[in-house]
Amino acid sequence: MKEQQQIIRDLIAVATGQVAHVYLGACPDQVEGQDARDHDCPACRAIMAAERLAK
């Protein structure tokens, strides 16, 4: 339960701009596409964790 709460808090931080994409790799954008994820980016890691939780 605590892990799920942390995932939600991390995702909220991305959504509110407290944690931003680094855009140095495969972050989602116009070039890489909206499904791209960069494993070295904290914002992408938060999204990936939420995606795993949603499955």
Rank of each mutant, 00 (worst) to 15 (best):
C41I: 05
A49R: 09
A26T: 13
D40T: 08
K55P: 08
A13Q: 07
K55V: 15
P42T: 01
E32P: 00
P28V: 07
M1A: 15
A13D: 10
D35P: 04
A36K: 06
I12R: 12
A36E: 06
V19W: 00
I47R: 00
P42S: 04
E32R: 11
I8A: 11
Q5R: 14
D35S: 13
Q4L: 15
I12F: 04
L24M: 12
D40E: 10
C27P: 03
Q34P: 09
R52Y: 11
M1W: 13
E51V: 12
R52I: 13
V31F: 14
A43I: 01
C27L: 03
Q34N: 11
D10M: 02
Q30F: 09
P28G: 06
D38M: 03
G17K: 02
G17T: 03
Y23P: 01
A50Y: 06
A43Q: 02
G25Q: 03
C27Y: 05
Y23M: 05
D40M: 08
G33W: 06
K55I: 13
H39V: 13
R37T: 10
E3G: 10
A20S: 11
E51T: 11
K55D: 15
A26I: 06
A13F: 02
E32M: 10
A13L: 05
Y23W: 12
L11C: 04
P28F: 04
L24N: 11
V14N: 00
G25S: 06
D35E: 15
A26Q: 14
D38H: 06
L11W: 09
E51L: 09
L53E: 13
I12N: 09
I47Y: 01
G17E: 04
Y23F: 15
A46G: 01
A43F: 02
D40H: 08
A50D: 05
Q6I: 06
V31Q: 15
H21V: 01
A54E: 14
G17Q: 03
D29L: 08
A15T: 12
K2C: 08
V19C: 00
A49W: 05
V22R: 13
D40V: 03
G17R: 02
R45A: 10
C44H: 03
K2M: 12
V14P: 00
A26W: 06
R45L: 08
R52C: 09
I7V: 15
L53P: 05
H39T: 13
A54D: 12
Q4H: 14
R45Q: 15
A49I: 02
I7P: 02
Q30P: 07
I12T: 08
K55N: 14
A20V: 09
C41R: 01
R9L: 12
D40C: 08
V19G: 01
D29H: 09
V22F: 05
L11F: 10
L24P: 02
R52S: 14
Q30R: 13
L53C: 06
V31H: 14
Q18L: 09
Q6P: 01
Q6A: 08
K55L: 15
E32D: 10
